[in-house]
Computed example of a mutant assay.
Amino acid sequence: MHFYRSIHCIKAITFDLDDTLYDNSLIVENAEAQMIKVLQKYDALQHLTLADFHAEKKAMLALDPDIYHDVIVWRIKTIISILTKAKVSPVQIPAITDEAMACFTFWRHKMHVPNATHQLLTQLATKYPLAVITNGNVEIDKIGLNDYFQFSLRGGADGRSKPFPEIFELAAQKLALPADQILHVGDNLSTDVNGAINSGFLACWINIFAKDIYHLADARCLPHIEITQLPELDNLL
């Protein structure tokens, strides 16, 4: 654990999810691949590729730049657009969209949460109120983490996504604490570290690739704490 800034008081901790509490590598890629297989079952989409899906997703973003704040809405609208352009019957579109999203959601939650994460959260929860602030679509009750957290906030549903301040401000309100007494833990220098610092939170960067922060282009400010693996947070106990 490395300290870049002094910390006077921590009274609560918020966590990012993906690549912070578990390894998220290839999870989304596999979920999307399974979703494409579902869509390919339909004659009008039998030649649909993942590249086609991503191209349409990019086109949706160009039409509505704010859509990226809610990854669930973005994905649903992308599927609907693909189905519409493929001239699928409007009557079928809702059912096919629901089927594709159900498949994606099932595989999206097929990650392994390490025992070390469970052990750490169990210990931290005895001393601090814990909460989640995520830009993704993982539901903590589906991955066995619900019992540790007082609440989970998601970009889009609960305000603009990190690094925008609304979602951090809402977390502080729900915790009933000043922002400068809340430590946010995450792996992303832009959304987690910069977002937390600019919102008045304390920031802990989990440097999962052991890179030098002084040589990273997306580093805009220093976190209060840097760790390379989550269990290092037991120093806060």
Rank of each mutant, 00 (worst) to 15 (best):
D64F: 02
A51D: 08
T117R: 07
Q92C: 05
S89K: 15
A131D: 06
L61P: 11
V132L: 05
A59M: 10
T84M: 11
L83T: 10
K58Q: 03
P129Q: 12
F53H: 03
M111I: 07
T117H: 09
K127W: 08
Q119H: 09
T122M: 03
I93G: 05
F53L: 02
V88Q: 10
D66P: 01
V138N: 11
C103T: 13
D66Q: 06
L145S: 14
T126G: 02
F104M: 03
A131R: 09
E99K: 10
T126D: 14
T126Q: 14
A59G: 00
F104Q: 04
D98Y: 11
I79S: 02
T126W: 09
L121P: 06
L120N: 02
I82P: 02
L63G: 15
H54N: 00
N137Y: 15
V138E: 07
L121H: 03
S81N: 12
T105R: 15
I67S: 05
M60G: 00
I67Q: 01
A131K: 05
R108D: 03
A102N: 14
L50F: 11
I93S: 07
L48C: 08
S89L: 06
Q119I: 01
I72F: 14
I143Q: 09
H112F: 12
V113L: 11
T126K: 15
D98E: 13
V132F: 14
M101L: 05
I79V: 04
N137C: 04
L130M: 09
M101C: 05
L121A: 09
A55W: 00
Q119R: 09
K77D: 14
D98Q: 12
L83V: 05
P129M: 10
A62Y: 14
E99Y: 10
P65F: 05
I76G: 04
P94M: 03
A62N: 11
K142N: 04
D98T: 06
F106M: 07
H118R: 01
W74L: 03
V73M: 13
I140T: 04
N135S: 07
E139R: 08
A55I: 00
W107A: 00
Q119P: 08
L61K: 15
I67F: 03
H69M: 02
H112K: 12
V138P: 01
I80D: 04
K85E: 12
Q119D: 12
Q119C: 06
N137P: 00
H54F: 00
N137F: 12
L83S: 08
H118E: 07
T105Y: 15
W107S: 02
I96W: 08
A62S: 11
H112W: 07
L121I: 04
D70F: 01
G144C: 10
G144E: 12
L48V: 07
A59C: 03
I82V: 08
H47I: 01
D141C: 06
D141G: 12
